[in-house]
Amino acid sequence: MLIVFYLAAIVAIVSTILAVTRSNAVHSLLYLIVSFLASAVVFFVLGAHFIAALEVIVYAGAIMVLFVFVIMMLNVGSETEIAEKKWLSIKTWGGPAILSLVLFCELAYVVLTKESLPGSEAIVTPKEVGISLFTQYVLGIEIAAVMLMSGIVGAYHLAQIKKKSKHRFLGGEE
């Protein structure tokens, strides 16, 4: 199991790095899906089988497909890719990378202050998760429902494209 974990972790890290560095949007997306699949493996190894399934179905499946859909729809082909390629020089990602590295070091410092804990072998079954979700967190489900509904209302309103608008504000200049 440990080996599976390490493999999955390495795949996740590498594919995530590739996802944020590829200039072609579709490539990035595919690497990201790989990364999510690897995360699903990690979840499985950690004993969260239900989450592993959700990661594949919802994250890699549904949400990423939305992205694919939009990228295809906008069809921002080679121009963007070339621009992105030019843009992604060391000057661009050097600063963020250093910043992120510092952040990672701080997080690692936090994590490593603790003496090593034995990981548990217990598996939290989907049933337990379901019971917890629909008893203790049932109000949370309600709140999440509101959130999704307002997301849908908003997305519906915003995605409408009207050819002619009667009132159009002047530009955003000061």
Partner: peptide, 29 residues
């Protein structure tokens, strides 16, 4: 948990509210 969820209810509604006048580029921005 509820702090996070209610925060997101607020945020998700706000995204659409801010960009509500969707024909203006400044609202979208």
């Amino acid at each position: 948990v509820s702090l996070f969820l209610s925060l997101e209810v607020l945020s998700v509604s706000l995204y659409s509210m801010i960009a509500y006048l969707r024909n203006q580029d400044r609202a979208i921005e």
